[in-house]
Design a protein around this nucleic acid. Structure first.
Lengths: 333, 333
DNA sequence: CTGAAAGCGCTTACAG
DNA sequence: CTGAAAGCGCTTACAG
């Protein structure tokens, strides 16, 4: 069926090693080059990647571990990684773990076994076992979304995004605020965003009430929690640690017959596409997932080639002002 | 670094071929088995997949070609394929073509070159070049989303979904209808859905006006088109060929200050997650992407193993009644 | 510049 | 049941 390097050698009347040299950019005589090129075209030859990898003991594939495929952040990040990797002549192989940390660990070992040149992990939580696996496999690893002192990573600027969001709503006049966050096991989302936000809150002198709540990442959980809070004391604004949580709050608000942003303002973090599709649209801190993915791809390739890369890269963010916050708020100032 | 079959053979004091036989489930003596198992554990051995593939001239990887990563339908389908493939001990390799038909063709050849056991294509349009490529590579191929007489495929029931949707809105009393479709080059979405819908329209005796329009798949294009139509003659309902088009119509409606569903009703096809997040939520014909992906995975594995599979499988659908259609419509009946 | 040979890690007949 | 040998398609020193 498909032709091998030997076929080409035979057709061109040269040795296999010469063909191989040609293929790998080594020096080849002019006439020989012509003959080989002719033969390759004739036989539609294309090298067997397995034989190549077997020799090289390494592939040009970057294994990418992702907790879920059906999230805007994941998709965009993957697109960024994929496109950049293609440009650098690397391939991306995705392993979807369906939010199982156990599967994440397995994937690390499995990628190493498959001789991936490097591994990118779209991280949510870094456990001892992760670190252990990274050390064991001896393959370059890069984290996206979470940082760790021992591992290279590309993160979003969660702290400053939190700070900027806090600043923004204070400036709009809000002084009674519900912050709806997530577990602190997630350093980026659960800790950094909240801390940035807190810092902004602390800088205001007038009396300002902030209540901190915690919920899950999914919409129904956020919706239920919001309903509870609204029944309890109905704050004029919810600052939510993610766009999905904000969507849950919006659903709860509709169910209660509240009008956005008059009765209740809402903000998110993420900049998911859906936030501008809904009506009213959501004010949020947008992260640049695709760009972060591209940076991650560049960095892992550098690491694979044993060049040095800064340990921590911080991707930017932008506050997107939309309709879910009342910008003509009068009260409270 | 990582151990090879020779290491294991040495440690266990047997021949490589015996270890190989053990690994591949051949008959091995009891004592030998023990020794090999012990050695494998000791050396943490795990076979080199490249060497295996080089011999087998085939992998257990199914190449999956997808036009885009950032769409609900794609993600869900991929999740279905991935999970089912894992269960069957196959791996999925994704190639994202960013909606380039050219890249799609390239991916087919590239997958064949990488000795993929089979190829699944999330299809939008099947050209001559596709067929040519399929024939050239001699690798089992399966289409999802579009059908073709020569290729195995799993499709959604576009025709009956269109029919059911038509029936549904007629039943609700609508008689002046704008159908916002897409290019007929997309057989499933552009032709089948419309034809099913038309059939429902033809079955009604009373005078009923249906206008057929065409737009692009993306939200802004649909929004612009809807704006135009509304200015022109403002129909009481838009039946949209996809959920995204429906979202575009909703945006246009908000911009015009129309209230949904009182002033304008809207329906979609797809059952995207966002359709139940928005407010009012969207009435739509839901397809089962994940399930279709699972079926596709099962079928391609059957084909890889040279078992016979029905050429065409039709996945089901369900009309989801939500808030974007006025179910108490009085006029027009 | 070019070629013969060895070897990457595995599997598969073939003997024994 | 077990082992020696050949070979999958490629690359890499090493000679010439």
């Amino acid at each position: 069926m498909s032709s091998t390097i030997s076929d080409i050698a035979k057709i061109a009347g040269v040795a296999k090693s010469t063909v191989s040299r040609y293929l790998n950019g080594g020096s080849v005589g002019d006439k020989t080059r012509k003959k080989i090129e002719q033969a390759i075209k004739e036989a539609k030859y294309t090298p067997n990647p397995f034989a190549q990898s077997l020799k090289a003991k390494k592939t040009n594939i970057i294994g990418t571990i992702v907790p879920r495929l059906d999230s805007y952040a994941s998709s965009q990040t993957l697109i960024g990684i994929d496109e950049q990797l293609k440009r650098l002549n690397y391939q991306m192989l995705i392993s979807n773990t369906s939010q199982s940390l156990e599967r994440e660990i397995e994937s690390i070992y499995s990628f190493a076994n498959q001789k991936m040149a490097g591994i990118i992990l779209l991280a949510t939580e870094i456990t001892e076992q992760h670190i252990e696996a990274f050390e064991a496999v001896k393959v370059p690893v890069l984290l996206i979304g979470q940082e760790h002192p021992e591992i290279h990573s590309v993160i979003h600027d969660d702290f400053h995004a939190g700070y900027a969001m806090g600043h923004y709503i204070l400036e709009k006049g809000y002084r009674d605020i519900a912050y709806l966050g997530v577990t602190e096991r997630d350093i980026a989302v659960g800790v950094k965003r909240k801390h940035g936000f807190k810092k902004a809150m602390e800088e205001v002198q007038q009396d300002c009430h902030v209540h901190y709540y915690e919920t899950e990442f999914n919409i129904p959980a956020a919706q239920a929690k919001a309903r509870e809070i609204i029944h309890d004391h109905q704050p004029p604004i919810f600052v939510c640690a993610t766009d999905n949580i904000a969507l849950g709050v919006l659903k709860a608000a509709y169910a209660e017959g509240l009008s956005i942003p008059k009765d209740l303002a809402v903000t998110g973090f993420g900049g998911y596409e859906v936030t501008e599709i809904i009506h009213p649209s959501l004010t949020t801190a947008k992260f640049f997932y695709q760009e972060a993915g591209e940076t991650a791809a560049k960095h892992i390739v550098e690491l694979v080639n044993e060049r040095s890369v800064e340990k921590l890269t911080i991707s930017k963010f932008k506050i997107i002002e939309r309709e879910s916050v009342d910008i003509n708020l009068k009260h409270g100032i």
